[in-house]
Amino acid sequence: MATLEIRDLHVSVEAENGPREILRGVDLTVKQGETHAIMGPNGSGKSTLAYSIAGHPKYTVTGGTVTLDGEDVLSMSVDERARAGLFLAMQYPVEVAGVSVSNFLRTAATAVRGEAPKLRLWVKEVKEAMERLQMDPSFAERNVNEGFSGGEKKRHEILQLELLKPKIAVLDETDSGLDVDALRIVSEGVNRVRDTGEIGTLLITHYTRILRYIKPDHVHVFAGGKIVESGGPELADKLEAEGYEAYTGVKETA
């Protein structure tokens, strides 16, 4: 069973007046089949956690470990992490001019699976996955994220999640900028992948709204660069009612 283990993770970024520590000792274990929600106010460092797991070059790990099934994730390149089974659905997916979605997806699938998927099966697989996410077939011929609406970008992220079948998926504010319809379609996509039981999910969010669609097994409150409280789904209800004030001293809804 795949397990992502984060131990005492410290991460800094370069700021104007030298390095600034953002993650201050994160401990978390996510197992295949589990769904963890990380909830925190703006600036708590929860996106930094997502990008640090994926290996974004902007973030420097200054202490601690991240392992996937015992393998040292921190020594892997960004693409090695993805091929090892980690996936990050990004809050702000990046435009890649001149590269079609279909070319991008096939290149990614080839890299992650270790061989090019058989063309006929692949076309069918993509078509069906796009239908489930209510994406128009013409979508495949557009350039990656170029001119996509907020909802289209998130659906495209979840399409990749469905096709690349990672062991552990980190969803960074996947709910942000979505209207109710888009949120439902995207959540259903995530749930289809979760229902296979073969994925561990780390859902990073500011608001409890998405948790009505994607039910977490564990909820963690993130503040000041680390997890300050952990519990079951009832913790989300408490946050919904009381906000983050108890953790930050600042009134902020969840």
Binding site: G55, D79, V96, V99, F104, T107, A108, A111, V112, Q160
Partner: peptide, 22 residues
């Protein structure tokens, strides 16, 4: 762009090729 492509498993050199091709 390179980070996004690499985060999908695409090796760095291939990611660069994709970007230049595009």
């Amino acid at each position: 762009q390179l980070f996004y492509l690499q985060a999908r498993g695409i090796p760095a050199d291939e990611a660069r090729r994709l970007v230049v091709r595009g």
